[in-house]
Design a protein around this nucleic acid. Structure first.
Lengths: 209, 209
DNA sequence: CCCGTATTAATACACATGTTTTAATACAAA
DNA sequence: TTTGTATTAAAACATGTGTATTAATACGGG
């Protein structure tokens, strides 16, 4: 668990790096910034502990994917497809939008990686995302029916994922359009809406033709 | 129209800059790269024609928003809300996913701006996006009914926009998950799916309570 | 042809960055 | 205490960056 603050220099550097990478992106972040924020006036510490800026980023990226993967979908098997969809949406909304800057920092790093992938992304997607997505596709197929082509199942998953992820990347624009909305909606209310909307959407797709 | 290639040095620089900004982002892009790609072996040309790297980016950003704004929603008034929704979805899918690297370059710049806004974003959103969004909210309200709170209308717009935008930012991950999908779905098919799914979702929201 | 302006070319400059190097210090074990 | 290793500190280094400066060249009007 590299998350809890054990007070070590290495950990303070890691925490500071997560914060600053999330805020400014990889290229804009400087090792001097990180060291300063970590309280170390030693600009060599990142090379000393991590072997360089890129290796530090790589370690953080691993941490991002692992953190999200820790949220296991609880006893998926015993649930109906609709219940599984609800849990799927709630879990992801909570991951992305629960309180705590730490979670939103990890999300920001993940989003930046989505938009402009580093060389590490492919391997991480294979290792962490691919198995999950298989389950999600099966869940959707169980709702809309076996007669639908695989492309339709994927499109439905995209429709749901797009809704879940929206605020993660579009918040800067949304917040300017609606300045009265000071923060992303409460994750429970958001999950409720997305579930209702998505069930409606899936029903419409199921009834096609 | 700064789009057509008139062969001037200034225009070649602009085109090259759009391409490279889209590919690498603002910070990673160097003026030397742009000049080289534009065929000018003069690293001073950007200062000469645009007044600096930042001013060049600013001009491109203006161009991005203006280009998207050119797509006027055609005779919106004479249509039913459902027809307007269909046009809305089709127009945006076509804007984002029609062939041509130029369009996708503009999209990439817009997405990067969404995720990590430059100081210019606020003004551009006010000038270009805000008026449109008002129309879109009215359109959705006309479908789900006047009794629904404004927050619900916004959530529905988010649900639709999230679907439309998904591939724009998540393509690098999606493409790794489904390597057989060589490209973003045909924009017409995509629009069909999103319309069906969204009408189902809106119907579900309309029938709530 | 000649001149003045627009453009291109080439170089210099100031600055920031990641990394390396070298020295100083802390700290535990023998 | 002494010794050896882990850590911190400070400076140096090589490189890449945007911009400024200066010179060369092109080109059109008189």
């Amino acid at each position: 668990m590299p998350l809890e603050d054990d007070g070590s220099t290495r950990n303070k550097l890691l925490m500071a790096a997560i914060r600053i990478f999330a805020q400014n992106g990889y290229k804009e972040t400087t090792v001097r910034q990180i060291c300063k924020q970590a309280g170390s006036s030693n600009i060599n510490s990142i090379n000393y502990y991590f072997g360089g800026k890129e290796a530090l980023y790589r370690e953080i990226l691993e941490l991002v994917f692992r953190e999200y993967d820790l949220r296991k979908d609880p006893d998926f098997a015993s649930k109906t497809p609709e219940e599984r969809l609800r849990i799927f949406i709630e879990t992801h909304c909570e991951m992305l939008y629960r309180e705590g800057e730490f979670a939103s920092d990890l999300t920001a790093i993940f989003m930046a990686e989505m938009l402009k992938p580093s060389p590490f992304l492919t391997e991480l997607v294979d290792r962490y995302n691919r198995p999950r997505v298989k389950q999600h596709l099966a869940m959707i197929r169980a709702i809309i029916g076996d007669d639908k082509p695989e492309a339709t199942v994927r499109s439905c998953l995209v429709s749901i994922a797009g809704q879940i992820l929206y605020y993660s990347f579009a918040w800067p624009v949304y917040a300017r359009l609606f300045p009265s909305d000071k923060t992303v909606p409460d994750h429970q209310k958001l999950a409720d809406h997305i579930y209702r909307f998505s069930m409606g959407g899936l029903t419409a797709v199921k009834g096609k033709k």
